[in-house]
Design a binder for these strands. Structure first.
Lengths: 228, 228, 228, 228
DNA sequence: AATGAATGAGGATTCATTCAT
DNA sequence: TATGAATGAATCCTCATTCAT
């Protein structure tokens, strides 16, 4: 009988307790990712330190390396988790009954991202991650996940927005990725940049992610519709 | 006869030769930036090492610091130079006589960026630079440059595209920045990512910057036009 | 049988062997300090390099930073250790039964310092250390240690030398610190200075720390006694 | 006719003007030393930068090296100047008619130092200077100066204080050097140390140079007198 | 004599990763 | 499985000094 079945009601495996069963290990992995997610809010890739992940997880540094081969693999796993959540929410939304118009789709796309602020900071990181040392297999798994889920959601979009030609759903998603990355970066400035933007003179450069994202999406959708 | 009187036609000041006049110094500075620009193609912010800039420039490490106080200041200067060139070309294009339609503006915007591939990799770096140690004044100078030139070009855009309401020119430019950053990141993958995208199965994720950028711009412009 | 059970009699932990227990770590720390102490003999603050400490300790540079946050903290720890030893010896000496006269106290003070030659070179360093980057807390801890131990020893001195008024014990110690620093500097010249002092003509400038210190102390004590 | 005789009333040679005559050169040297003296107040040996001396002098860095072979030689020259002034003042004071008692001599010694605060910060530096690269001849010149002037002043002291045995004058001076160094260091703490000493708890460690120096001298002199 | 651009050795510190326990 | 001490490569930046002009 595994420890996991001994009536332990807590969902979380106490740190420093050995994860013996596969389920325990999965849980530990998830805990590490949860810690990393929380940390990510106030860290850049460079300042995101494995030592701090370990400390915040209540684990030793070496233990992290039992679950993730490198720092990059850990961050990639984090990104995957967020993306899956995002796709799930999007697909669920698109599965609802119509009628769909541009505004409703825009609302859905914004709502789905709204709860996933970390994604806007993590998605641009993907490029940085891939510049570094990650196992080819992890990289391929990520790309395949991205493609498969994109294809599925693209189909949903094409279903809800009849003016989209075949293939335009995927193209729309690619544009969204670009906007998430680009607007995310502008809307989330480093402390010094934020300080500068607080100056009245520079205020026109301020960008609020939510409204800007919505405005972009809407414009894009109307543009695609008009293109017919 | 001094070197200065030899009608030196060469544009490049030989390394290790003292840059005495203001012009010489400007030239040396430009050389360093040119070296940095070339290096930037295969380096991330973290791997971009001052030692390598020096070595590639044929200069000593310390010499770099005569021209740029920090690594960040060097990279910010690089970005500024590219941006200024981009704005100049854009403004020059917009100054030509009309008639302007969406397609012509899109063509201009693409053409202007086409020769400035490095910009798509450097613009997203700005966020990283600002996270690090640069003098507040350098940061402010950059932001003000960005704002001033954006405002000027925005006016040009509003002149050429009558359907743009006041303020929409700047908004359009902000969208462009986001797209440059976002699409740039997707179109310029790290070596490992590129290798993966070469696999047939993942080919739908391939993005060619030029066409994608043009398609986005066109869609956005039609969308803004339709919004009237 | 683990290393820990082998009745390890050696006082020194072999370099590169992991210091696992708290005792091991304390020992490693002490080893580093011992290395630093030996090095200090032929180094100034500026030339005292962490790389050399590491090399001489048979450890990696990074390892030093597991035990001391900065170079300054290491040197401050070295100074603290020497001071504590000095105070301990002084207090032990003063605890012995009297009768105490000036000569006996002078003898004690000299004897106590005699075995701690490094102190005369390290005490003046304190000023330099404090000019640099150390945590405020480390600095305060040092100052409080110095004050507490000084106060305790001052009490001992006042007990043994009845002609000392309350407060004069501490004042005497402050004078001693000044003499240790000042005479220490004169008695321990740099190689070039030593070479010069070897010249017959300059011999009057030679100072032997021990006798000079004793002569100063004696004079001071007689002076304080006469002041009554 | 040298430029120096052309009725130039200013005592100072304008920076960047060539020093042609020997007198001009001497003047330029003196200017550099004056600048260095002013700088020394807020600099340690390490932070005392030749570049700043040059800038403050209105000269180029290279020019300094026409007058002083190394940074250390410059500082040694500065120390020599201060010492000579100190000895001059001391000898002048001792030349006045008696009667001399301990208090009057102490007053003289304090007064003579009082105007030369920089000396208390520079004298301890001598050791550091000699640890570095200075020409042997400069070093010997300094030592001989120190010895000669010490001998002369020692004679003056022995004349004024009849209880001093032959040789005790020089010994007294050596003690003074030690006290200047030692007390100087305690009385002139680095900013962080000063901040700590401002805390009430650590106030007993505060030392005011003037009173402390006087008290020490007095005690020493009474001690030497009593030793008869 | 004056300049100041160029030099380049040198040092502190960080942190992902390993591996002995 | 968990640990965490040890590693060591890697990087930015300083500054006394030189030397071509």
């Amino acid at each position: 009988m595994s420890r996991g079945q001994q009536g332990r009601t807590s969902v979380t495996l106490p740190p420093k307790q050995r994860a013996r069963s596969a389920a325990d290990k999965q849980q530990r992995r998830a805990q590490i990712l949860a810690t990393a997610l929380a940390m990510w809010d106030d860290h850049s890739f460079a300042s995101f330190a494995m030592a701090e992940v370990a400390a915040r997880s209540g684990l030793a540094k070496g233990t992290l390396y039992l679950y993730f081969q490198t720092k990059e693999e850990l961050l990639l796993a984090l990104l995957e988790g967020l993306l899956v959540g995002w796709f799930d929410a999007l697909d669920a939304g698109l599965a609802e009954a119509g009628p769909w118009d541009v505004e409703r789709v825009a609302s859905l796309l914004c709502a789905v991202l709204d709860e996933r602020h970390a994604l806007t900071r993590l998605l641009p990181l993907a490029a940085t991650i891939f510049e570094h040392n990650i196992p080819l297999e992890s990289a391929r798994a990520y790309k395949e996940l991205l493609l498969d889920r994109s294809a599925r959601s693209a189909a949903g979009l094409e279903r809800c927005l009849p003016f989209l030609a075949p293939g335009e759903g995927l193209w729309l998603l690619l544009q969204l990725y670009a906007l998430i990355v680009g607007l995310g970066q502008m809307a989330d400035p480093a402390p010094m940049a934020r300080q500068l933007l607080d100056e009245e003179r520079l205020s026109p450069l301020r960008v609020a992610f939510g409204p800007a994202f919505r405005r972009c999406i809407t414009t894009l959708l109307y543009g695609m519709q008009a293109g017919k």
